[in-house]
Design a protein around this nucleic acid. Structure first.
Length: 353
RNA sequence: GGGUCGGUGCCCGAGUGGUUAAUGGGGGCGGACUGUAAAUCCGCUGGCUUACGUCUACGCUGGUUCAAAUCCAGCCCGGCCCA
C-alpha cells in the first residue's frame, strides 16, 4: 500500500496524524511550502529542507509551460529533477482558471489559456492528469474550476457540476498507482453547494480531499466560515488539504476544524516583498526602525536567518535589493509557518486523552 | 581673458510668458499581498493648517509685463572650446 493516513490523536475536531507516501511520511497537520513553480524561487531544496518542511508543492501549469513535463520525466520525475527526495504535491492548474481569468476561456470540456509567449494552451482533466502523471509527484490534484469569491450562485452551481464531472474524468485518466489523486471541493461561500460538491466527490472515493475555492479574494472571515462548514463533510479517515491557506489565524482555525495539509505562497511572496512573519505578526522589514535594530529577526527561531543576522542587516539587504535578503526572509518565513503548524500538532498530541 | 552651453524641489531631470507647488525617474516614508501573470503592486513626499486656505519656491539682484522657472540686464557659480 503506497498511501495511508492514520489519525494519531484528536482534540475536538482537530487532529494529529501521519500521511504516508512513497517518498516518505508527513506528520500532520503540515504546511507545504511552494518548492518550485517554473518561474521564480529563492530557496534551494537544501534550504527548503532546513525549514523543516516535509512535503512541498509544485505547479502543473507552470511546469508544463517550462520546462515541460517531458523534460521533467526524462530526469526520472520531479523528485530527481529538483532534487527533493521528500513527498511532493502538484497542483493541477485549476487555480490558474481563477488567477488567469483574463487570459483564458472556459468551456465544459476544459480551459484554453493564453501563455506568456502567446501560445494557446489547452487544459482538460485528461491533459492535467497526464501531465501530473508525467511529472511524478506523490499527490496530484483533480483539475477543477475555481470561481472567484464574488461569483454569483448560478456560476458556482456550474463550477461545482464541472468540478465533479472533471473529477470523474481525472480519475479515469489517472494511470499511476504510486500517485494519490485528490478530489477538490468547490461550492464557494454557499453551504448547500459545498455540501453538494462534497457529497458528489466523496462518492467518487478519492484517497484524499482538498477544500478548494478558498482564498480567492474573499477575506479572512469568509475563509474561516467556509472551512468550518466544509471540513466536517470530508471523510475522517482520509487526509484533508486546505488549498492556498495561509495566515496564522486561518491555519489555526482550519486545524481546529480537522484540516491536515496546507500550502500557501504567502511566506515566500511576503519574503520577496520584504515582509517577515514573526510570532503571529507581519513586519515590513523595509520600515525605518529596522535600520538600526541590531537584534535577530526572531530570537526564538532556530532558522539560519535568525541565528546569524540582525534585523538591521536584513533591512539593508532588502533596501539594497540584494537577492540574499529575499532568500533569508523566505527561509525564515517558511520555517516560521512550518513551525507554527508543527506547534499546533504538538498541542494536539500533548493533550491528555 | 574671449566664446559657448548651463544653473529647477533630498538627487537626477522635464518644462521656455498664464489651468505650475511645478511632468518623469531615483531616493525617502507608509500600505497591500492567502492552491504564484507577483524580487510585484498602490499611496504620500515644500512649510503652516483638521480643512477651505495661505505663505515660500525654479543660482543672486534688478527690470519688462495684468501675469515670469520661463523674456531682458548685470552679477555669482559650473562644463566645454579658443587664447
Amino acid at each position: 500500500m503506497s498511501f495511508s493516513f492514520e489519525v494519531l490523536k484528536t482534540r475536538g475536531a482537530s487532529r494529529a496524524g501521519i500521511f504516508h507516501t512513497p517518498h516518505g511520511s508527513i506528520p500532520t497537520p503540515a504546511f507545504m511550502p511552494v518548492g518550485t513553480l517554473g518561474t521564480v524561487k529563492t530557496l534551494s531544496p537544501a534550504q527548503l529542507g532546513e525549514t523543516g518542511a516535509t512535503m512541498i508543492l509544485a505547479n502543473t501549469y507552470h511546469l508544463h509551460l517550462a520546462p515541460g513535463e517531458d523534460i521533467v520525466a526524462a530526469h526520472g520525475g520531479i523528485h530527481q529533477f529538483m532534487d527533493w527526495s521528500g513527498p511532493i504535491l502538484t497542483d493541477s492548474g485549476g487555480y490558474q482558471v481563477f488567477s488567469l481569468d483574463q487570459l483564458r476561456t472556459l468551456d465544459d470540456d476544459g480551459v484554453t489559456f493564453r501563455a506568456p509567449n502567446g501560445d494557446r494552451v489547452r487544459f482538460t482533466p485528461e491533459v492535467a492528469t497526464r501531465i501530473q502523471n508525467d511529472l511524478g509527484a506523490d499527490v496530484i490534484m483533480c483539475f477543477d474550476e475555481c470561481p472567484p469569491a464574488q461569483a454569483p450562485y448560478e456560476d458556482v452551481v456550474k463550477a461545482v457540476a464541472r468540478t465533479t464531472a472533471w473529477a470523474t474524468r481525472c480519475q479515469i485518466a489517472h494511470r499511476r498507482s504510486d500517485q494519490a489523486l485528490f478530489g477538490i471541493i468547490q461550492g464557494g461561500r454557499f453551504e448547500d453547494l459545498r455540501k453538494r460538491s462534497a457529497q458528489e466527490l466523496v462518492a467518487l472515493d478519492f484517497p484524499g480531499y482538498a477544500i478548494g475555492g478558498v482564498s480567492v479574494g474573499e477575506g479572512a472571515a469568509l475563509i474561516q466560515q467556509t472551512v468550518a462548514l466544509t471540513a466536517p463533510l470530508l471523510p475522517a479517515h482520509k487526509p484533508r488539504y486546505l488549498m492556498g491557506v495561509g495566515t496564522y489565524a486561518e491555519l489555526a482555525q482550519a486545524v481546529s476544524c480537522g484540516v491536515d495539509l496546507f500550502d500557501c505562497v504567502l511566506p515566500t511572496r511576503l519574503a520577496r516583498h520584504g515582509s517577515a512573519l514573526v510570532q503571529g505578526e507581519r513586519w515590513n522589514l523595509k520600515n525605518a526602525p529596522f535600520r538600526r535594530d541590531y537584534t535577530p529577526l526572531d530570537p526564538t527561531c532556530p532558522c539560519y536567518t535568525c541565528t546569524h543576522f540582525t534585523r538591521s542587516y536584513l533591512c539593508h539587504l532588502i533596501r539594497s535589493q540584494e537577492v540574499l535578503g529575499l532568500t533569508l526572509l523566505a527561509l525564515h518565513n517558511v520555517t516560521e509557518l512550518v513551525r507554527f503548524v508543527q506547534g499546533l500538532r504538538q498541542r494536539i498530541l500533548e493533550q491528555r486523552s
